[in-house]
Design a protein around this nucleic acid. Structure first.
Lengths: 117, 117
DNA sequence: TGTATATTTTGCAAATCAGGCAAATATATT
DNA sequence: AATATATTTGCCTGATTTGCAAAATATACA
């Protein structure tokens, strides 16, 4: 009985699904939208104001996020509201921010070392 | 004194840097390699065995990961060993796996509900 | 020094992506 | 029903990505 694998090895299909998530977030406009949605649902028009691109472009980006199961949408009145499903995004972004910070500081320190004889 | 902003707002440059990380991980082969590296450093030839693509393709993918500051490389003898710098990757992948799982289950339940009158 | 091994770089061709405009849809309002 | 508003989709163009093969580099070893 091979059921309920608590931490299954990363098979191809599994990796592909996850890569799809990363790929969807790998565009500045989409990441910005996801980040904005981490504070609560927003309609397309509000997201457009935040990103500042053509509304059709926004809509297409949202469909990519939806296709990756990162957001869900719900029609409310005349608007469509999007919500973030991937709740752990904020935590991960804090971590990547910290890593980027650390590396920027490392580069800074290296530069400083080169300047001082 | 506006120093040490513990959680600065996501400005454009900041978002772009982070999107670059997501983008680099947004390819099945690259994500697979990063995941493998989360268990420890590996040389290019070992990564090739894991991914199973042309060695030149592997090398290119690795340069993308390196360009996004996700991995570092170190020449040891005749091999080049790559290590994961983004330590929080494993944790995030566990989370995305859980979210994907939950959604698969939800779809499953919905199907079941449709079948039963 | 020559040779084998490991890795990177280069040159393409095919595939995919991004962005905007215009057209189509859907829903609310009058 | 007609109109206005919000959103999605079709289509086109230019840019980027991918993957492999061949050539170039680098390093170990005889």
């Amino acid at each position: 009985m091979d059921k309920l694998p608590l931490r299954r090895a990363p098979n191809r299909k599994h990796i592909e699904e996850q890569a799809k998530i990363f790929k969807a977030l790998g565009h500045p406009s989409r990441l910005l939208m996801a980040e904005a949605l981490s504070h609560g649902p927003l309609c397309v028009c509000e997201l457009q104001k935040i990103v500042g691109a053509d509304i059709s472009t926004i809509s297409r980006h949202l469909s990519v996020l939806k296709g990756a199961d990162i957001v869900s949408d719900e029609k409310k009145g005349q608007n469509v509201y999007y919500s973030l499903k991937l709740s752990c995004l904020g935590q991960f972004m804090s971590c990547t921010a910290a890593v980027l910070d650390k590396q920027a500081q490392a580069r800074q320190a290296q530069l400083a070392a080169m300047m001082a004889p």
